[in-house]
Amino acid sequence: MTVSQHQHKVSSDCAALKLRAVGLTYRSAQKETRALDGFSLEVACGEPIAIIGPSGCGKTSLLNLIAGLRAPTTGEVIVRGQTVTKPRQQTSLILQDYGLLPWKTVLDNAALGLVVQKVSRSAARAQAQEALRTVGIEDFAAAYPGELSGGMRQRLALARAMALQTDLMLMDEPLSALDALTREELQNVLLDLWQNAAYAQVLVTHSVEEAVLLGKRIVLMTPRPGKVRAIIDNPAMGSRAYRQSATFHQQCTLLRQLLLESASDTDAPDDKAEESVQK
């Protein structure tokens, strides 16, 4: 791995996240589905990781496991040295629909994590207001999420995480519902936030450019049951200007190629049979 100027952010002797041979099997009455199988990965403190892979490769399940919303069938999930058994205060999960509550104002949405953790109402609001300022929507504190644009809702979801002083940011295709321009704008916001707050990040995305822009390492997953197929080092990431560089485009091409290869590998006719084991 080449040493980049942002290397100092990533501390190798501090692990934000360790996944040890994590497996997850869903059981229903008719069949069992193996979502993940022997997934291992280590993310250093402050390191931004992007995960990319075919649809239904268990990326969402993976985030749910890390967030402590689900227990793995096999293996172990360790965040900051502690085995995850339930949701953890400083782990933030942002889902595709942002998980905002339409009946709470922007400010109360941003403060929700703190309120749930029994922080006093005034302190929670002050912290939330600060977080809104960080993401640039402090003028909309009294509005309801329904009155916000898609990009602003995304910012609000980020503010809710920032208010909790997150050290592990989990994101499930957070920008996929946005138009191209807003998406680029929000990618820059994510980049800035990560640089200022220095949280470790696991970003699940379908977009090759997004993965290369926002991942210091890019994890390519296999189809279900998901495991690590390849890890691409992307040390030059870390600034907005990277988008225009030749390295950026080379990395995108490389990643696209790997994705295509893995797709052609799995076009086998017995694809479905592999995914689910009939009982």
Binding site: K86, Q96, G99, L112, G113
Partner: peptide, 12 residues
């Protein structure tokens, strides 16, 4: 998803 999001904040 809404319930999951709020649960991830540590909500009982």
């Amino acid at each position: 998803d809404l319930v999951l999001s709020v649960r991830s904040l540590g909500a009982s």
